[in-house]
Each structure stands twice: as C-alpha cells, then as structure tokens.
C-alpha cells in the first residue's frame, strides 16, 4: 500500500509539470499559428520569379544575406541587377529584362592565388605535421615555408570553395577559371590574404607574389618571388605598375592593357599571364622565360 501511495505522488509530481509545460507550449503554438495566419505577408509574384532566376548558391557575394535577400532587394528596392557574380552578365541582362530596368554591365572576375612558390622554387623551414589547415599552420611560426607570405598549400581555400574551383598543385593553390564564380569565399578563407579578385579578360597579367621583404631576402628563399627590382615599372608604358608599400610590384588592372612587356623583363618570372580562352588553370607559358635574362 505504501509503495502504491508513493508511486501515485510521484506520478503527480511528474504529470503536473509536464501538463503545465505542454499546455503552455500548446497555447503558445496555437497563438503563433493564428498570428502567422492573420499577419501573413504574401510574397509578391515578382519577388518569387526573381528568386527563381537567381542561381541559388546563397554565397552572399552580392552583399545581401543570400539569394532570398537579393531577390527581395531587387523586387522591392530596385537595386542594381549586376551584383550577382555567379550569374554574371547573362543573369544581369535577363533580370533587367524581367524587371524592366537598364541592365548593369558586370565585369566578370575570377579569384587568383598570388603565389607561385611551388616546392621547386622555395623550400620549407620545418616539417609541419599538424592539422592540414592553413590557418592552423600559419600559427606555427607563420607556416612551414621559408617564405612567410606565400601559399601554405594545405587547402583551406579548397575547402571553402563551394564550386570546386580550387586545387592545390605542388604546394600552391590554383584557381580553375572556368569553375570560379567570384563568390570571394576563398578570399576570406586564406589566412595569408593571398587570393585577389582580378578581372576576367582575354589576357591578364599578375605579379604572383606578395612577399614584402627586401629583394635580397626574397632571392634567398624563393626563385620566383618579386624582388622589387622595378624593371617592370620602367617597362610598362601605361603607368600601371607601381611599387607601393615595399619591394613588391603591383599591377593596376584598370590601367593594364595586357601588352606583356612586364612579363618579358621580369628577372625572376614572378609575373604570370593567362587568357580566358585557356579556360582552366593559369597558363604557365614559359615563352617569355628566355627573354627574361
């Protein structure tokens, strides 16, 4: 009898809280359901259509929270149509046609890893055996490579890329231009800030180095690093190359006419070129190498 009695009390102890919590949850749920029904805001058909036209990658490169956010802004606030790098110019045109606004030209851009220090050109200072992740490795004396500005080659950008456009070849990440959608997720992921967005043109020239140490120092650790000799600066007829903030040449893509003179004079072959018609990886093109010396 005693046992049954205590059991009954215990059951009540449990049932009352359960009933209260459950009852409150049911009550709140009911209220929320009713409120949601009464205060429903129907999405405009325009917005729904715009959302369907967007690629749905939700990468956030447009500056909105995702494709839903951009669709809402397009439909309601009349923002420019060319903000989506994934859809590019065709999307901008079709959006403009649908919304009845002027199409905004989009310069297609691709990511470019500004390092060419593969294992044949530079070396490691120690053997890194930690987690295969660039951020982690960069915490260990700025990474295992002799050049502390260079690509760590552990593929943090590869993991960040939702389109599979990046791969690591011999210690340096390279971008597949055909797959790159310019979402800039890799730019944010790289702990060395090595990835830049460059315009997708028929021909493009890049100083694939971000080493800011002196030329002599750079020469010791990498055979393809920019040593800041400023030969390209003098060779450039368009005033597009400058040594800003250290012995490192940077090409102003707005002024560059892709004449190729800089690449021809570069003594360390740190200037690289590629063409969109190549499609895949940046062309190694050692054509100008003989001219260099």
């Amino acid at each position: 009898m005693h046992f049954a009695f205590s059991l009954a009390v215990k059951a009540g102890d449990i049932l009352i809280p359960v009933a209260i919590t459950g009852g409150l949850a049911l009550f709140f749920g009911g209220v929320l359901a009713v409120v949601a029904k009464f205060f429903e805001i129907p999405l405009s058909e325009k917005q729904t259509r715009v959302r369907e036209m967007l690629p749905g990658a939700n990468c956030g490169a447009c500056g909105y929270t995702g494709c839903d956010g951009y669709a809402a802004a397009l439909a309601n606030d009349g923002v420019p149509t060319g903000l989506c790098p994934v859809g590019g110019a065709p999307l901008s045109a079709s959006l403009a046609e649908f919304l009845g606004v002027e199409a905004q030209s989009v310069e297609q851009r691709v990511a470019c890893v500004m390092c060419n220090g593969t294992s044949e050109h530079t070396r490691t200072r120690y053997e890194y055996q930690g987690i295969p992740d660039c951020v982690t490795a960069s915490m260990m004396f700025a990474g295992p490579w002799a050049c502390t500005y260079g690509c760590l080659g552990l593929g943090t950008c590869v993991q960040a890329c939702p389109y599979g456009a990046l791969s690591v070849v011999d210690g340096v990440a390279i971008v597949d231009n055909a797959k790159c959608t310019a979402c800039e997720l890799c730019v944010a992921a790289c702990p060395k800030k090595l990835i830049s967005m460059i315009p997708m043109r028929e021909a493009s020239y890049q100083v694939k180095c971000r080493n800011l140490t002196s030329g002599a120092e750079t020469r010791k650790i990498c055979t393809v690093g920019c040593i800041g000799c400023s030969r390209c600066v003098k060779a450039c007829g368009d005033d597009a190359i400058h040594l800003d903030g250290g012995p490192l040449a940077l090409i102003d893509q707005d002024k560059c006419t892709a004449c190729g003179k800089c690449k021809a004079v570069c003594p360390t072959n740190s200037i690289h070129s590629w063409g969109t018609d190549v499609g895949a990886a940046p062309a190694e093109a050692p054509v100008a190498a003989g001219v260099a010396q």
Binding site: F28, G29, L32, V35, A36, F39
Partner: peptide, 17 residues
C-alpha cells in the same frame, strides 16, 4: 519557452503592422 514564443509573436506582428 515563453520568451521564444513571444519574440516570434512580436516579430510576426511587427512585420505586418
């Protein structure tokens, strides 16, 4: 439970009203 429901409730109403 109450705070979560309340915020949801207020958000829905604010959105419309």
């Amino acid at each position: 439970l109450s705070i979560a429901a309340l915020v949801q409730f207020v958000e829905t109403i604010l959105k419309k009203a």
